[in-house]
Design a protein around this nucleic acid. Structure first.
Lengths: 195, 195
DNA sequence: GTCTATAAAGGGATAGAC
DNA sequence: GTCTATCCCTTTATAGAC
């Protein structure tokens, strides 16, 4: 509790998260991490028992960061169309503002560890997903709510996933990387489903 | 040209692709590959100069496999709505039938090597993407064609991306993993945009 | 074309000084 | 809490026999 060095652990995590997001667990060595944090590799083991624990803590922190949003994004009382619009905008802002979150999620899904996926589903997404199902049911009653929720999420997430390659694809304009432009586009698509 | 051993190289690639897809470049060792192919690790170096080249060839083969579809999916002369329906179905079949393709693509995008992304964009997706832009323009003239193309692709791709975690999410039913069910859902969403 | 053996480098992790 | 030094294992890659 004494001084500035209590922050080291948090600093390590902060610097490690983007490394794991970009290159994956196996793609980052403890030595690389140490270099990025400007410490000796051995020092990392004072703060974390091993590499796996460091990764799990990085993962946990990245997901916890958005736990509040996941729970409080549906407080607004309004028409389902207005709520949809708001949720789309918030999701775009969230995903655009934290690329690491999406990447780590993608990597976890591809890795396919069932226990971890079960955990992520239950403790990170369940509440949010349930709210989304409900919202979808109210603005698109003809659609299966689970499929509809995935569609809305995919419609948003994919635009940010492909950001690194987007500028090389036909028809690209700088505005296509803008969070608000994407949000408006997605909403304009989905509101035709509403009526 | 003599005998059965000319196939070794192709066999190595065939077995390597799913390994790289699931665990990424750094997540797979030459020894693991050798074991999976039932060869000694040193033998791999007779067929490929190094690991990187093996990976690039695996990548290339995976993408080339679909080059034909990417070029010939738009020959059908019909209403834009019918063509959209057909393209959606074909994309679902393709993505559902080759998980490795999507995973390798995702990993490439997350890795962020600009030269490789430029190459993939130009040599794998450019033609297809251009056709999609055109199709989008004809069935949804009010939307930006580039954004609309990405939306259609994301709407489809995301459903398959999340397959491993889907069964843990609220509202899941077994049918949600079915390629045809997804295709019909996506089309039913998009056709409301058409009118 | 595949093997055994091995070199050379890099990886995770620990011991002990400060 | 951070360092240096080091252990031990795995990794990529090569040399040379068959």
């Amino acid at each position: 509790m004494s001084s500035e060095k209590q922050n080291t652990k948090k600093e390590i995590l902060a610097i490690t998260i983007p490394l794991f997001a970009k290159s994956g667990y196996a793609g980052v060595s403890m030595r690389q991490i140490a270099k990025a944090v400007d410490l000796q590799a051995a020092t990392l083991y004072y703060h974390f028992p091993d590499k796996h624990t460091l990764y799990i803590e990085a993962l946990t922190q990245t997901f916890n960061k958005h736990a509040d949003f996941m729970k409080e994004s549906f407080t607004l009382q309004a028409s389902s169309e207005q709520r949809l619009h708001q949720v789309i905008q918030q999701l775009c802002t969230l995903i655009n503002g934290d690329t690491d979150f999406s990447k780590l999620m993608q990597r976890e899904i591809m890795g396919g560890d069932k226990k971890r996926l079960q955990f992520l589903a239950d403790h990170v997404f369940a509440g949010f997903f349930r709210d989304m199902n409900e919202l979808c049911l109210s603005f698109a009653p003809d659609q299966d709510p689970h499929l509809m929720t995935v569609s809305v999420l995919g419609l948003i997430a994919y635009h940010f996933q492909i950001t690194p390659i987007r500028s090389f694809l036909p028809g690209f304009q700088a505005s296509h990387n803008d969070s608000e432009v994407i949000a408006n586009h997605v909403f304009s698509l989905l509101k035709t489903v509403t009526k």
